[in-house]
Amino acid sequence: MKGLIVKDLLLIKENIKQLVLFVLVFVFIGLQGNQILVFVPAFLSMMMFLSTFSYDDYNKWNSYAVTLPNGRKNIVKAKYIASIFLSLVAILLTYLLVILFGVANHNLNLEETTATLLGCWSAIVLLQSIMYPLIFKLGIEKGRIFLLVLVFGISALIGLLFQNIKVSLSSEVIHFLDNYLLIILPLLMMIILYISYKVSAKIVQKKEF
């Protein structure tokens, strides 16, 4: 499996160099005022990683990969691990730079940055968790279209629901979320990611390439 991760990272090695540049630029812009922008590099890392699926599809890599020892298991595992690794690197790098710049400029707002980056990481993990099974099932081209439909569909649905139903959270719930969200959210995302991995593994186990 290690080899498959190496292969994916080699595929986007040029992009990874650009990613470091993006982190620098967006941290710099973010610290000028709009700190919410620091999430951009991590999102870019997710998009970059998606291109490895396109390269794979184009050269029918998966058909070849399943002939390698433990191929079916490992192609799924490697995609999840490599993409989590990449987004974590992007986020940690951003975090580190924000702290460095913040300390240097005496305007460090750690709480806001932590919340922004954690929210961003959760969103990335959620998207990947929905996307990967779809891509393994349908291929990158169809998977992408399906994902768009799904994301817009869910957003519209949630929007409609909240418009028509008045949600009133009691102050206790808000207080609870305020205190524990930083722990609950990552845990929840890990569970979702794990389920998604299991679904993908099942799809690939039976798939004909």
């Binding site: 499996m1 080899g3 190496v6 794979d56």
Partner: peptide
Amino acid sequence: FPELLTAKDIELAMRGI
């Protein structure tokens, strides 16, 4: 392998496969 990779890249990957 995807065609962006080189013979050297393939070696690095196959070593771990």
